[in-house]
Amino acid sequence: MAKRQLIELAHARSGDKGDRVNIGLIAKRPEDYPVLVREVTAERVKQHFATVCLGKVERFELPNLEAMNFLLHEALDGGGTFALKADPQGKTYSAALLRMEIDVD
């Protein structure tokens, strides 16, 4: 087992829906997708964003795109025009997820 930072294995894009952020995480190489599915669980993502995501994290798999979609609830200080945040639409959360370190074979 070795530690790798997600940015080496994946790319991502994030956006908002109300007070929720969605992060699409995409394997750069198809062969890395199973590792992402194994390691980047909803629990780990919740832990990674513990200081900004106050609600649950849902995970959806898109094996056809070698991708997963994460939905972070209560993650935008109320969201939309309510938010006092510098990133009120969670646009930078995608790259923040890529800072996570995971175990690879």
């Binding site: 894009r13 908002d16 969605n22 959806f60 898109l62 979609n69």
Partner: peptide, 13 residues
């Protein structure tokens, strides 16, 4: 294209 497909979606199904 994959990046944009995943933009601002919830349950992909």
């Amino acid at each position: 294209v994959k990046e944009q497909l995943l933009y601002e979606i919830g349950d992909p199904r």
